[in-house]
Design a protein around this nucleic acid. Structure first.
Length: 293
RNA sequence: GGUGCCUUGGAUGAGUGGCUUAGUCACCGGUCUGCAAAACCGUGCACGGCGGUUCGAAUCCGCCAGGCACCU
């Protein structure tokens, strides 16, 4: 069993190439995008279109409600069980997307950490909003000194999550971290797409304009009642919410979307740069198709 | 031709003799094990040019260059 993983920064051209590769492999596409999972965000996340989904069967596109909880660990489980199912009729499958952590979760696994108790989560969230981050840091130092020493405690998300696990499980968060690579019932072949920076940035800027022309503002307006949901804390949506709230001018918001998308692409490239299992190609290179034969 | 004002890093913009010379934006680099298109962290780069005063000048003085304003 072989799992091909097509990855690369946003707007590099994964969607189109994925279709070609999938057709060649006779595989469906297991989408790997933490936002395209949600229903109703099609334009702003550049999700595969209905036509594209008709060409090749896609999984993990528009399957969840905006308000529902999802995570890399959940994705790991979902993909693994889907792969198990599909392996009866496929000897190779294609996973395609740019969500770095989701890719790692599938390829290497995430440690098993107890699911955080909803009440604990809510309590800590409230305390954080109350400005109690300093006390929470102190608590973490007591409950999990080992993690406290290594973690970036200036990042509230890290502190909160570690505490969530400590309080839910009654054990130090770090006691769940094995840092071991989980065995997989498939071989992974990572295909990375990259372009020269200027080329990629031009595509990003153009794509944002295209999204606006395609009705992005309507899509965002429709989602406005849900703007506090985590799924919508996403490039493209958060900026246009500022516009709809009357806080930003539209051209300013659009420039921000472009800038934040470029930043996101840079972060993706930084992350992928450490992964030496990736074979890199320019999307237009013909040799790329040979990799999957 | 004369007089006055101005000239700070990629942009903007404080600072008026000496301590690590801001801040903001942009650019660039990095972190990442359960909401990750999230969150967080970091770096570089300047005082128009030349000369002088001074222990020490972006800060004072002179000349030059460029810009702006006014005057003849």
């Amino acid at each position: 069993m072989k799992l091909y993983v097509l990855l690369g920064p946003t707007a590099v051209g994964k969607t189109e190439l994925a279709l070609q590769i999938a057709e060649k492999l006779g595989s469906p596409i297991l989408n790997c995008d933490s936002r395209q999972i949600y229903r109703g965000m099609e334009i702003g996340t550049a999700a595969p279109t209905p036509e594209q989904q008709q060409r090749v069967k896609h999984y993990f596109v528009g399957t969840h409600d905006i308000g529902s909880y999802y995570s890399a660990a959940q994705y790991e489980q979902d993909v693994l069980s889907l792969v198990r199912e599909l392996s009866h009729e496929h000897c190779s499958l294609l996973l395609s997307g740019g969500s770095m952590m989701y890719i790692d979760a599938v390829c290497n696994g995430i440690d098993d950490i107890p699911t955080v108790d909803a009440e604990v989560r809510e309590t800590l969230r409230r305390r954080l909003n109350n400005g109690e981050i300093d006390e929470m840091r102190s608590e973490l130092r007591l409950l999990d000194p080992a993690y406290y020493r290594e973690a970036d405690t200036r990042n509230p998300k890290r502190v909160v999550h570690a505490l969530e696990v400590c309080y839910t499980s009654g054990r130090p968060y770090s006691s769940f971290l094995t840092k071991e690579r989980k065995p997989r019932p498939f071989d992974v072949v990572k295909i990375g797409l990259r372009r020269e920076r200027q080329e990629l940035f031009d595509r990003i800027n153009q794509r944002v304009d295209a999204m606006m022309a395609a009705g992005m503002l309507d899509e965002v307006s429709r989602l406005r009642p849900f703007r506090h949901e985590n799924a919508l804390n996403t490039v493209g949506y958060k900026e246009l919410f500022h516009y709809l709230e009357g806080e930003w001018e539209l051209p300013f918001a659009i420039e921000k979307i472009k800038k934040n998308t470029r930043d996101y692409a840079k972060k993706q490239m930084t992350w992928f740069a450490h992964d030496n299992e990736i074979k890199w190609f320019h999307p237009d290179e013909p040799s790329i198709m040979k990799v999957v034969l």
